[in-house]
Simulated scan of single mutants.
Amino acid sequence: MSSNLDPRSLLDELRNFDKGGFFDLGHPLLNRIVQGFVKAAGIGAAQAVSREAYFMAIEGAGLDNGLPPEVLPGANKNRLPGLRGETSSKSLEAMVKNTGKESLQWGLAAGMYSGLTYGLKEARGAHDWTNSAVAGAITGAALALTLDDSSHEQIVQCAITGAAISTAANVLSGMF
């Protein structure tokens, strides 16, 4: 018989995390939202930091060949604003601030998507591609609204893209 006081390794905790064990907020919907948020926020932070490290390495190694930033495809498009490759506290502060912002965006998107798919499953009584499409469309539209200058076309395009990606993921998850 096992109790909650038995010593567990970090590997055991991570295995339990995949089964949904870190949070118990009293309702499966809340648990899904928070777990989706936490997992995606971590991924968003790792993505933002690794992207900035890549660009700093490219600049430091001189692989940009002295070309202006507008010539390099995507070089400054996704850069963290405020970072100039310095080691100053201002540069570190900008990186932490922007990494936090991206983590929050990723987390909110994942939490929203997870909550919507669970809610639709409970409301419709079925878990199928339709739930994924609707949740993806709503999440995509919500993400488009976080852009600095979102237009009607961008919102519709993000909704369609979100629906397509989530539907494809749902359909392909049964194949592999």
Rank of each mutant, 00 (worst) to 15 (best):
L147E: 14
Q35H: 14
G82D: 03
E52P: 01
E102Y: 11
N78W: 13
N76T: 15
D24C: 02
K97M: 05
G82C: 04
A75N: 07
A109T: 07
T130F: 12
R51D: 09
N76D: 15
T146F: 11
N98S: 08
E52H: 04
P69H: 05
W129T: 12
K121W: 05
L145F: 10
P73R: 11
D64P: 00
P68S: 11
N16Q: 12
N65H: 12
K121S: 14
V34N: 00
G66H: 01
E86V: 04
G62R: 02
W106P: 01
L80K: 05
V34D: 01
G82V: 04
E86Q: 08
V71E: 08
L11A: 14
V96Y: 06
A141I: 11
F17Q: 10
L14P: 04
A142H: 06
T87L: 13
Q105M: 11
N131T: 08
G115Q: 02
L67G: 02
Q35L: 09
S103D: 04
L80V: 15
T87C: 09
L145R: 10
L120M: 09
K101I: 13
E122F: 06
G136Y: 02
S9P: 01
F55I: 12
L120F: 14
K77H: 10
L67A: 12
L120G: 02
P81I: 06
L25M: 06
K121G: 15
T146V: 11
G42E: 07
E93R: 13
T99L: 03
L104W: 06
E86T: 15
K39L: 15
S88A: 08
T139D: 03
L25V: 07
I138N: 00
L30G: 14
N76S: 15
T87F: 11
G62M: 02
L83K: 07
P68H: 08
L63Y: 09
I33D: 00
A75D: 04
L63E: 05
S89A: 14
P28N: 08
T139A: 05
A109D: 05
R84S: 14
G44D: 07
N98P: 03
K101Y: 12
S50E: 03
K77F: 10
D128L: 04
A40I: 04
S103R: 03
I58M: 13
G119S: 09
A109S: 15
G42V: 06
N131C: 15
